[in-house]
């Protein structure tokens, strides 16, 4: 009974908003959501599904579990995880244009604000208002995904495709197109991919391009970020072992 009330569903014009109760544990929430999807799948029409997780921060495993559940029960959805914004979203939807949520667009992106001073605070997420959009699909040549916040793509970003986010860009697949993290100027944003083989990476105002003689294939997850004004790429694992800002000798390969 208790679990039944810890997720609340609100219809939106183009999808559904689900609110997570602040008090419940993640496992309870997942179970309650599973039940809701099972019993009321028909009520989740529309391409967008926004989940308001309140003030909680979900780990990668939790995000993936959530994404897998939704995919299994509903099929592909434009899934957005937001923090405590249900009221705003409901208000926006009432007055809105009926399109996709404002923070996820295929197409133009508002002009970048002036670059912020180097923050370099790596222990904090790159986006203050922490919000992640998860997109499960291959982003193909000629397609551009822009996102106000951080974006997680479960799939590949192909040559000729562009992913632009004001926060971090995470690709759970191969990144072979162009990625721009920190698109409004944050140079502490990061680009992470299971296979990081982009034609070009931009972070804030910095641009790194693939060497004209491409190195071999990337075989492990890597992260690109800005060190001393240059975009460097290094293995994702182990980067916590060493202070990121220390100009250590094991610094990653510049790709610029």
């Amino acid at each position: 009974m208790q679990a039944q009330t810890c997720v609340r569903r609100h219809p939106l014009r183009d999808g559904t908003l689900v609110e997570f109760d602040a008090a419940a544990s993640f496992d309870e929430l997942l179970a309650a959501l599973a039940r809701l999807l099972d019993e009321e799948a028909h009520a989740f029409a529309g391409p967008n599904l926004i989940i308001d997780v309140g003030s909680r921060v979900l780990g990668t495993d939790q995000l993936l579990d959530l994404e897998a559940l939704i995919r299994r029960e509903l099929g592909p959805r434009v899934l957005q995880i937001v923090n405590g914004e249900a009221d705003d979203i409901l208000r926006e939807d009432g007055a809105g244009d009926g399109g996709a949520p404002a923070s996820l667009r295929d197409g133009g992106f508002p002009p970048a604000a002036p670059a912020e001073p180097a923050a370099g605070r790596r222990d904090r997420p790159a986006v203050g208002r922490s919000e992640a959009v998860i997109l499960r699909r291959t982003v193909r040549s000629g397609q551009r995904v822009t996102c106000d916040g951080s974006i997680v793509i479960i799939g590949d970003v192909n040559p000729g495709a562009e992913v632009i986010a004001t926060g971090d860009v995470v690709v759970l697949g191969s990144l072979r197109g162009m990625a721009h993290a920190g698109a409004r100027g944050r140079i502490d944003a990061q680009v992470i991919a299971l296979r990081l083989e982009p034609v070009q990476i931009r972070i804030g105002p910095c641009i790194g391009r693939r060497p004209d003689q491409p190195p071999g294939r990337s075989l492990r997850p890597e992260v690109a970020r800005v060190l001393d004004g240059t975009i460097v790429v290094e293995p994702l694992a182990g980067r916590r072992r060493r202070p990121a800002r220390e100009p250590g000798s094991d610094r990653g390969e510049p790709i610029g």
Binding site: R137, R140, S141, G142, Q143, N158, P159, G160
Partner: peptide, 12 residues
């Protein structure tokens, strides 16, 4: 292949 990818995106 690049152009095929573009077309597949449009088809999808």
């Amino acid at each position: 292949v690049r152009d095929a990818d573009r077309i597949i995106g449009l088809l999808e």
